[in-house]
Design a protein around this nucleic acid. Sequence first.
DNA 1: TATTGTTATACTCTATAACTATA
DNA 2: TATAGTTATAGAGTATAACAATA
Lengths: 154, 154
Amino acid sequence: MMENRHTLEKLFELAVRLGDEMERGLRERRLTRARAEVLWLLHRGGPQAQHALSQALCCTPRNVTGLVDALETTGFVVRGEHPTDRRATLVSLTEQGQSVLTQVDADYQRFSGGLFANLPDADVACFAAVLEQVLARLSPDTPASCAERTRAGA
Amino acid sequence: MMENRHTLEKLFELAVRLGDEMERGLRERRLTRARAEVLWLLHRGGPQAQHALSQALCCTPRNVTGLVDALETTGFVVRGEHPTDRRATLVSLTEQGQSVLTQVDADYQRFSGGLFANLPDADVACFAAVLEQVLARLSPDTPASCAERTRAGA
DNA sequence: TATTGTTATACTCTATAACTATA
DNA sequence: TATAGTTATAGAGTATAACAATA
């Protein structure tokens, strides 16, 4: 089907544009997409050890070290002692981290609200339904624990 | 609207999964997304100077130098003399480059065909329509010349 | 004087491997 | 023996700045 190919191309195009849009907002707040993902995980899961972040982000422990280093340097997170495991590091949001996340969240909320504004509800519902179907079709080979890295940092 | 936010998150999730899927195929053929984009441009536009690639990819000339270096090393493209401008380099696909592109194209065709298979035509049409609408809503601030980098390398 | 592509340098994300401290 | 996180090293993509050759 030629139309399917065209639709897939448009889907990629939209994804790239939306990603760029998100990234622009993050950059203003001195964040990157990968670092923002870490903040989201900490926001939703509370203080965590790095290995937990590593699993949620589907990346290597070494990668987490780098991201946490950067976030610590810029003041968004702090490393602390793990209460029960002295090997582990407990990563927590600072007040600044919490604050910037609140702003990013508001941006995201505003953006998603405007994106589908003025479109018929039925169309948006249909769009969302196809989205779910196609996603379900791809899901089997992707571990659920890696779901976090799909939000484009917001 | 909370649902809009959820839909946007799903959209990002789908984009990431599809991108990963595409990238897997590229990696098997010793290509990356960025390099595959260069091959597509050469396929569709014929032999070109690097500054043309730079504009189409929305990246710096330096970046193109790196990509073309890598593609030349791996045998997918060759640098040649520009017929009229001795400052410029003419980048062309090799036979190997042409061949791998044909394979990637076939992958993409097959993949896009399967993605929406068994879904009601009306739903797919509605999906595509919303896609276009949302894209049009974002388009103004993105230069048309940068459209190429949106195909996820395929 | 402007453009084309390069070298030099740097930053970000990512990965593997070897190692230390702890479990 | 296995796990948590580090250092060491590497590769990919991206960027700015300075520079050479050419227009």
